[in-house]
Design a protein around this nucleic acid. Structure first.
Lengths: 241, 241
DNA sequence: TCAAAAGTGTTATTGGTACACCCATGG
DNA sequence: CCATGGGTGTACCAATAACACTTTTGA
């Protein structure tokens, strides 16, 4: 177990990452569960080293849980109410895990450092779930993808942070053409459409959607994809470079 | 002179405010000039007290320079490169102002505190310039409105911060209908149009602009405004509540 | 030959742009 | 009655939505 207060982190400032993936027509969020009795879920988070930028810190935190560095990443908001502290959460957790904390997992200095009020900068990341093998870090019991509409209750304001991330993603999706980061290398038009429908939680008309996406002129049409199904084979597409 | 390190501020985290006003068909930024030899301009900035939210801190900083609390305020981005520090600026300033710093304006502890790397959260504010009497604070030599296209060279990354603020304002203008915060209580349609033209730095067609704005259904048409000019008197409008 | 899903074309509808015209005002 | 700027109506264009039809595929 590392003791953050002993490293040269910036105090009272953290980064929370909303790592978004897409599978089975659903938008997913990568959420670790903490290795303590009591069912605590928390977004991948971390602190900022003196010698790294906030973007680098976010990327380091991402890499720790996903194993990948080359990920689409966007800062979306800072969260800073006065009472934003994990003291309540930590006290409850320590009460439920006395045997572990008997071994002094945190010392007093550590506890004071980490339970102060923290301001957090939110980042969201878009990843191709096929390329990511979620990794536990040393305080995780497990880590898993959750449907964004059915997230576990997370500590502090993490559920709210996901909400803001989704809001920002919707605003930026058409603007920045970032949706394709959630898809594999090649994909069918139907997959793109279902992705959009998952993100916006509403249906799109098939033909008009296809026209709109193709008119962006960023996709390259490849060979057809024969699925074995008894219907016309769809084309595969790839993001043109 | 206050010594920030002695107050209970959050370390290495600051807030920079881009206070925007509108006059003479130009978008203006309120920029203080520091009371030191050497021509140093800096955005209204400050630190965050332990017992206030980041939004409250921004509002406090705004009120100090404008005298008003009830201002449209929006957080737009955190700035956090590794080398973001005002050490270079402060050293230059102290060299140019040895007589003042002979009196130990900063002590060593103070200097170390304030020259560390700082992460800054940017806010932009929209104000009705008629309602604001710019106020110097105790480190300002003067404070003035500058045309956003003709800003003085400010310390650190403050010019870049203004750029990002303008970018965000443009994105949010139609979305959030916030432009009217820059205008007086009542205004003509031409004034609204000129405001938009100043913000987007491009012309709009008069008739179409009027239609677009009226179609928003947020304006209330009042009596005509007789200016004494030899032309048809324009209607006054007010934001409907 | 049939069902399912893909591809594409054709027609409304809408939102924005361009052009035109008329109106009120004070000199 | 004229110059100036304000208000509005109409025609046009492009982007989107709605509707329809054809094609491909494997059973």
């Amino acid at each position: 177990m590392h003791h953050p207060s002993e490293k040269d982190y910036i105090h009272q400032l953290s980064i929370d990452c909303v790592i978004l993936g897409y599978q089975d027509r659903q938008l997913k969020v990568l959420v670790p569960k903490l290795d303590f009795r009591g069912d605590f879920w928390a977004l991948p988070s971390g602190f900022i080293l003196q010698e790294e930028s906030i973007d680098e810190a976010a990327r380091r935190i991402l890499e720790e849980r996903t194993g990948i560095r080359d990920i689409y990443l966007d800062q979306f908001r800072a969260f800073g109410p006065t009472d934003r502290t994990n003291r309540a959460f930590l006290e409850r957790m320590m009460r439920l895990n006395e045997e572990k904390f008997g071994e002094e997992l945190f010392n007093r200095k550590e506890f004071d450092w980490i339970t102060r009020r923290f301001i957090s900068i939110g980042y969201y990341a878009l990843v191709d779930m096929n390329k990511v093998v979620p990794r536990k870090n040393d305080i995780d019991e497990s880590i898993a993808w959750y449907n964004i509409r059915n997230l576990p209750p997370m500590i502090m304001d993490h559920n709210e942070i996901v909400g803001k991330a989704l809001e920002t993603l919707r605003l930026n999706l058409d603007e920045k053409l970032i949706g394709f980061n959630l898809l594999p290398e090649t994909f069918t038009m139907r997959e793109v459409q279902e992705l959009y429908e998952a993100i916006f939680d509403k249906p799109f008309a098939r033909n008009n959607f296809q026209k709109k996406i193709l008119d962006l002129n960023v996709l390259e049409r490849l060979e057809k994809k024969f699925t074995g199904a008894a219907n016309k084979a769809p084309y595969l597409y790839r993001l043109a470079r």
